[in-house]
């Protein structure tokens, strides 16, 4: 085998020199090329590792911030939902209160209107009743009845408690449904004297619409002893009685 190699040029000293040459080259290359280059590669690798670590940290930060943002968003949504719910509840409450108030006011207005209407109806009914009674009385009152009513009115005037200190300003106005005879006018004078303590000056008016009886007016004071006054009093009492009954 060695002979075959020698025919191809094998020469042990040359082999050794080539080996030494290769070893020297390897050492020199390691010193001037590979070692600095490997140091640079390791430095770049470390820098890349550091950059990747920083990148991973940044990614983790981004993920954490994203999670925080999502949590804050969820919290904000929950808070908004809570606010909306509270506002809705408050709005419902206020609406219900407003509706109840409106209903109450409407009911009150309706009741008031109903009362007013009912009072008006009562008044109209009483007025109709009084008018009917007035018409009936107007037809039924004869001379005798007029005298009886006059006598009754004179008693009533005499029984009236009038403040005698009322200054007699102007004339006393006496109103009757029919003309008075002298005796009747004298009786009226007596009644006035018993009322005021003296015979005051008085004028007489005839107004058939009072139906019967007398009316004495002294200033602002009116002593109504007429049939019409009785009817008006009756009407007022009817209205009051019906109103109290409806309430």
């Amino acid at each position: 085998m060695i002979d075959g190699l020698e025919q191809l040029g094998f020469h042990l000293p040359s082999l050794i020199i080539y080996s030494i040459n290769f070893a020297i080259l390897t050492a020199v290359l390691y010193a001037i090329a590979f070692r600095p280059m490997l140091a640079g590669i390791r430095r770049r690798t470390e820098e890349r590792a550091q950059a990747e670590a920083l990148l991973r940290e940044a990614e983790a930060d981004v993920v954490a911030q994203h999670a925080t943002s999502l949590a804050a968003l969820a919290e904000a949504r929950a808070e908004a939902a809570s606010i909306i719910d509270a506002a809705m509840r408050q709005a419902r409450t206020e609406t219900r209160d407003a509706v109840e108030r409106g209903l109450a006011q409407a009911e009150a207005r309706s009741a008031s209107d109903l009362h007013a209407q009912r009072d008006r109806v009562h008044a109209e009914g009483a007025a109709l009743a009084v008018a009917a009674a007035e018409r009936v009385l107007r037809q039924a009152l004869g001379p005798e009845t007029q005298q009886a009513l006059l006598a009754s009115a004179l008693r009533e005037i005499a029984e009236t408690n009038v403040d005698v200190t009322v200054p007699l300003q102007g004339l006393i106005s006496v109103t009757s449904a029919v003309a008075l005879t002298v005796e009747e006018w004298s009786a009226v004078g007596d009644a006035l004297r018993s009322l005021f303590g003296t015979y005051p000056a008085a004028v007489h008016h005839v107004r058939p619409e009072v139906l019967g009886g007398l009316t004495v007016e002294v200033g602002d004071t009116v002593i109504d002893a007429t049939v019409l006054g009785k009817l008006h009093q009756l009407q007022a009492e009817l209205e009051q009685a019906e109103s109290e009954t409806s309430d």
Binding site: L5, G9, F10, H11, S14, L15, Y18, S19, F22
Partner: peptide
């Protein structure tokens, strides 16, 4: 030169 190849291979 086979010596160079052989040196490297060895």
């Amino acid at each position: 030169d086979i010596n160079m190849s052989l040196a490297l291979a060895l």
